[in-house]
Design a protein around this nucleic acid. Structure first.
Ligand code: SF4
Ligand code: SF4
Lengths: 133, 133
DNA sequence: TCTAATTTGGACTAATATAGTCCTATTTGA
DNA sequence: TCAAATAGGACTATATTAGTCCAAATTAGA
């Protein structure tokens, strides 16, 4: 059904929220409350973004998150990769070859699927967080 | 993870196969055997395509399927719709509003997601079976 | 030094979607 | 009448996505 996962949506909302908070640290709780995002899930997402150097985190009382990149340096394509794994329109299109397709031998559409992959990738590679702010 | 379902892949292979069979009727068994597609699943797909007037079917001995449209009249976008339901990058983007998002009130990214939806749709609307043949 | 606010992170469960199977009926040419 | 085929409902299995639970570590401030 070709969709953006909730994780990615939550990440987009969170990054937008943080980018609009003028350098002030933002807590997971704040975002969760104002955007109605499940707290635990959001926490995981922010941690991931921190580990991927999209965010900087400060632990402890008065802690929170802040951006570590400009919004136009954060690509939707990369976000999707971080949070959901490879953006691949078919099993055979994964970068890492863990997921092979058992039909690869008899497959008659692989090269066309590859073109499609390219076109879909381009859509997501051409969007950054700044498009969402 | 943004992918084309197996159903759609199987449909593409089947339609390609049929289109290359020079007006001769093609059976589900033939396609299933040569393309290694699970027979029962493929049958369902072909039946669906018949009900959607993409294929014509002939029952009984010597029966089989043939195309009811030119390959350049069969859009990937429509195939996906038929077989998997709405192509929607997010819950709120479904045509029929069965699937609403509970966050719609607090959502800060909906309009940008709508743009994305449009771009993704365009990719699939600009591909027909003829691109796969 | 204690406490509350916070991030960190593993393990788990629940819900949903996708893929595949099974079974029976119907149609039809030979 | 038989065998080859489509038709289609109901079901099961698998995988993915979404969400929850719990315990630990960090840190500012009282
Ligand atoms: S069926 Fe063909 S296109 Fe689809 S995943 Fe397998 S090899 Fe790739
Ligand atoms: S979170 Fe926003 S963009 Fe996503 S489905 Fe809900 S309303 Fe649409």
């Amino acid at each position: 059904m070709i969709r953006i996962s909730k994780k990615v949506e939550y990440a987009l909302m969170a990054l937008k929220f943080i980018s609009q908070s003028d350098n002030k640290l933002v807590t997971a709780r704040e975002i969760s409350d104002t955007k109605k995002i499940p707290y635990d899930l959001l926490s995981k997402i922010l941690q991931k973004l921190k580990n991927e150097n999209i965010l900087i985190s400060n632990q402890g009382t008065n802690g929170g998150y802040s951006l570590n990149k400009r919004t136009d340096e954060i690509y939707l394509f990369n976000l999707m990769n971080m949070l959901d794994g490879d953006v691949a329109v078919a099993d055979c299109m994964h970068e890492a070859k863990e997921k092979d397709c058992s039909l690869e031998d008899s497959c008659s559409i692989k090269s066309e699927v590859a073109k499609l992959q390219k076109e879909v990738e381009d859509v997501f590679k051409n969007k950054t967080i700044s498009d969402f702010v």
